[in-house]
């Protein structure tokens, strides 16, 4: 998943707040995933319109790290999720 890829959640997968446990979860058929704080900020920006690079731009303004590091980490995270079928790249 490179900077130009546009990630989205496929049908049946959604990011949801689990208020009872005070956390967010990605719910997929038969499976669930719990993002850490930074991963949650990434997933909240996955809308099927923003590219990986666009997400990196937004987060680089909020986090204290070089933009290229942020983009590389985001791409790696989303690639891992894509292998699990939790996101797809458009």
């Amino acid at each position: 998943m490179d900077g130009a890829a546009v990630p989205r959640f496929p049908r049946g997968v959604r990011l949801r707040e689990d208020a009872a446990r005070g956390r967010w979860v990605v719910l997929a058929p038969e499976r669930a995933f719990v993002p850490d704080d930074v991963a949650l900020e990434v997933l909240k920006l996955v809308d099927g319109e923003r590219s990986v690079g666009g997400i990196a731009d937004l987060l680089a303004a909020r986090f204290d790290a070089p933009r290229e590091v942020i983009e590389a980490d985001i791409a790696e995270m989303l690639r891992d999720l894509a292998e699990r079928g939790v996101v797809v790249a458009g």
Partner: peptide, 14 residues
Amino acid sequence: MAWIKPRVAEVSLA
């Protein structure tokens, strides 16, 4: 805010 490599953990629904 500090950037920490983002991670997503799979949890067992069971």
